[in-house]
Amino acid sequence: MKRPMDITYEYLKEKILNGTFLPSQKLNEIDLSKEIGVSRNTIKKVLLKLEKEHLVVTEDNKGATVKAYTLEEVINYFEIREVLEALIIDSAIKNITDHDILKLEEIYNKMESTLNEVKFVEYPTLNKQFHNIIYSLSSNKQAVEMVNMIKSQLQKYHLRTILIPGRNESSCHEHKAILSAIQNRDPSAAKIAIQTHIANIRKTIVSNYNLLM
């Protein structure tokens, strides 16, 4: 049975990441306590935890609000992620097996099928599975941890890129280039492919920032 802390944490984090709680929205402790059915002290502890993950901002005498990122901050985070993803995939290729490549191929084929069948809702989950296999194979666990933190912070922007016409198709082509480099066990090509992919996400967000807010 989950503890009240865990239930509250998962509930609030999901609401923030899926956009139910909007950037700069005030998070009232009393209202949340009643809504979730936990003590106000539990809400306080969870908000402090979310603040450490850069999802919430707390101020004395003002309470907590959902963290709002400026366009410059979003760009900076994606530029950092480009560097980290290159480090991750470089070490992952050194550890990859034929079985791992088969799993990536299977996921990629499903990604392609969702687009052909216009099942866009399923695409982000497959996308996440594809990258998670690469992360699991990397020996640079610190880089993986930092990337996951960045992805968590910017998830609400990233997920909404599926609404941009043509972005899913471009993403699929980018994943094919990543897969091809991995199949060839070519770290140089893999680093270029992954960095191109992340750079294109960044460019899509920059070009459509107002729509994605």
Rank of each mutant, 00 (worst) to 15 (best):
K2N: 15
R3E: 15
P4N: 13
P4H: 13
M5R: 14
Y9S: 14
Y9K: 15
E10K: 13
E10Y: 04
Y11G: 03
E14R: 15
I16E: 04
T20V: 15
T20G: 00
F21H: 09
F21D: 09
L22S: 10
P23F: 09
P23K: 11
K26A: 06
L27E: 02
N28L: 01
I30M: 04
I36D: 00
G37Q: 01
R40G: 04
N41H: 08
T42K: 01
K45E: 09
V46M: 07
V46Y: 05
V46C: 06
L47R: 01
E51Q: 11
K52M: 07
V57D: 08
T58D: 05
T58M: 07
D60Q: 12
D60W: 08
K62A: 13
G63C: 03
T65P: 02
V66E: 06
K67E: 12
A68G: 07
Y69R: 13
L71H: 04
L71V: 14
E72M: 15
N76L: 12
F78D: 05
E82D: 06
E85H: 10
A86K: 15
L87D: 01
I88P: 04
I89E: 06
S91V: 10
S91A: 10
A92W: 05
I93L: 12
K94Q: 12
N95T: 08
N95C: 00
T97H: 10
H99W: 10
I101M: 03
K103Y: 07
L104P: 08
L104A: 12
L104N: 10
L104H: 09
E105Y: 02
E105L: 05
E106D: 14
I107V: 14
Y108S: 04
Y108A: 08
N109H: 08
N109T: 03
M111N: 06
E112K: 13
S113K: 11
S113M: 05
L115S: 04
N116M: 06
N116E: 09
K119G: 01
F120N: 06
F120M: 03
F120W: 02
F120R: 00
V121W: 04
Y123Q: 02
K128M: 05
K128L: 04
H131R: 06
H131S: 05
N132T: 07
N132Q: 12
Y135M: 09
Y135D: 10
S138D: 09
S138W: 11
S139G: 09
Q142R: 13
A143M: 06
E145T: 14
V147R: 08
M149T: 14
S152N: 15
L154T: 14
Q155N: 12
H158K: 15
H158L: 15
L159A: 13
L159E: 13
I162Y: 10
I162C: 08
N168D: 00
E169T: 10
S170Q: 09
H173S: 05
H173D: 07
E174T: 01
E174F: 08
L179N: 03
L179D: 00
A189F: 00
A189K: 11
A193P: 02
H197C: 00
I198L: 01
I198N: 01
N200Q: 04
I201F: 05
K203W: 01
T204C: 03
T204D: 08
T204A: 07
S207F: 00
L212Y: 08
M213K: 11
